[in-house]
Nucleic acid binder design. Structure first.
Length: 384
RNA sequence: GGAGGGGUCGCAUAGUGGCCUAGUGCACCCGCCUGCUAAGCGGGAGGGCCGGAAGGCUCACGCGGGUUCGAAUCCCGCUCCCUCCGCCA
């Protein structure tokens, strides 16, 4: 969530960012208006409270002086003041709640050097490594991944659907072992070679944790939710990792904090409804190894590049050709200020994006604590 | 799910209705003093609102309600931690 102070002092910064994202800028004026309302109410309620406090003191003094009649009079005045305070407090709470609710729907402010563009077609290739092989170079007919993985027992799509419905799969012996090996290999690489601390985190989190990572209320439609306990299934390890240090003040000199975690990720993938997705693409549940860093804000650009390198080592280690994309302003996720995509090349199909993305939201730049991080993930659902 | 104990400033603690404007110690920051270090002395250090500033006001004792003119303190609900019991995979 953006800090209202930043919006108040520099509304144009937010306006420009929203324009670049192709989003409505009217929200800025609405935020400023609600904020003004709220502050007026705060001033009013505090004035009344001050009066009530003075009044209480007067009661005490009257009692000490033995003037019962005066004390009673002050008491009555105090009662009346108290009721007015209560009414105003309710109005102030309501105004604050409205402001917060709106603020939660505002996407993060883009970095200044994000290239402009409307959607993913405007993303640019920053660099590429490795040569994608053509289908012909293999000298035999290639199967699409959903056939090959079934034939080799990597996946069992039919039984996945039987157990959990569409967009779930069961991994067979080969797939299960492959996934386990990839996860362990990635965790070890990031831990040993790249200096990340491994964590095992909850897959179900509180509403506050979802809000803290920018996933609620924006993506409520895409999240699985347990009504009874108001717990939410994580769509990425980024959510609990972001929550690790929520409401903490991090001592100087202890940054960067680097974490790596493997978790399953749960997504409704509503956007994919009706589109043709086969095999391992767009599952409701998939596994992911995520890198995450908390760093000083001024270092976040450099660290973003560092994480891209760390992720690239995974592709290199697997011998996969890949390209690094610079995402344009219209394609950058809600919570990010800048983003890189990494595309691993398929063998005979067109190249496509794996769920790898880097982000580094800059947030409340209030003086005492700012948020800083770079993220993010290395997918296990590699292109086939 | 039940019973009991606990949650006060970064840490440790004091505080049983108005003298709490939350004190003290440690740690921290700035000065002073000082061969060095340590100690000592003085000051500072939370959020918000108003204000150009000086400053003023307000909030903050796990969270939320209530009682009261007035709550860290009394009452109710919740939450987290600890101890025990029950239930369950």
């Amino acid at each position: 969530m953006l800090s209202i102070e930043a919006v108040r002092h520099e509304p144009d910064v937010l306006r420009r960012s929203l324009q670049a994202r192709r989003e409505d800028v009217a929200v800025v004026e609405e935020l400023v208006r609600l904020d003004g309302e709220r502050r007026a109410l705060v001033a009013e309620v505090e004035g009344l409270r001050a009066e009530a406090k003075r009044n209480s003191k007067a009661v005490g003094e009257a009692m000490k002086a033995g003037d019962a009649a005066a004390a009673d009079g002050q008491r009555a005045a105090g009662r009346e003041l108290g009721e007015r305070v209560k009414r105003l407090e309710a109005a102030e709470r309501e105004a604050s709640a409205q402001l917060r609710a709106l603020l939660l729907t505002v996407p993060n402010i883009l970095a200044g050097d994000v290239p402009d563009g409307a959607d993913e077609s405007a993303n640019t290739v920053a660099r590429a490594e490795g040569e994608p092989r053509s289908a012909e170079s293999y000298g035999f007919g290639l199967k699409p991944h959903w056939e090959l993985s079934e034939d080799l027992g990597i996946t069992d799509l039919e039984r996945g659907s039987k157990v959990a419905g569409r967009m779930f799969t069961v991994l067979g012996e080969a797939g299960a072992r492959l996934q386990r090996a990839l996860i362990a290999w990635m965790l070890d690489m990031h831990r040993k070679s790249h200096g990340y601390a491994e964590r095992a985190v909850p897959y179900l989190v509180l509403r506050e944790t979802m809000e803290g990572s920018g996933n609620l209320p924006k993506f409520a439609d895409n999240l699985y939710h347990d009504d009874e306990d108001d717990l939410w299934l994580i769509p990425t390890a980024e959510v609990p990792l972001t929550g690790l240090h929520r409401d903490e003040i991090i001592a100087p000199g202890t940054l960067p904090l680097r974490y790596v975690a493997h978790t399953p990720c749960f997504r409704r993938e509503k956007a994919a409804a009706g589109t043709q997705v086969r095999g391992l693409k767009r599952l409701h549940q998939f596994d992911k190894v995520e890198m995450y860093q908390l760093v000083e804000p001024e270092r976040s650009v450099a660290v973003l590049e560092e994480i891209v390198e760390h992720a690239s080592d995974v592709a290199r280690g697997l011998g996969l050709p890949f390209r690094i994309l610079e995402l344009c302003s219209g394609d950058i996720g809600f919570q990010f200020v800048q983003s890189r995509g990494r595309v691993a090349s398929g063998i005979h199909r067109r190249q496509r994006k794996v769920p790898i993305r880097q982000g580094k939201p800059v947030r409340s730049v209030s003086d005492k604590r700012s948020c800083f991080r770079s993220s993010r993930c290395v997918g296990s659902d590699w292109p086939c």
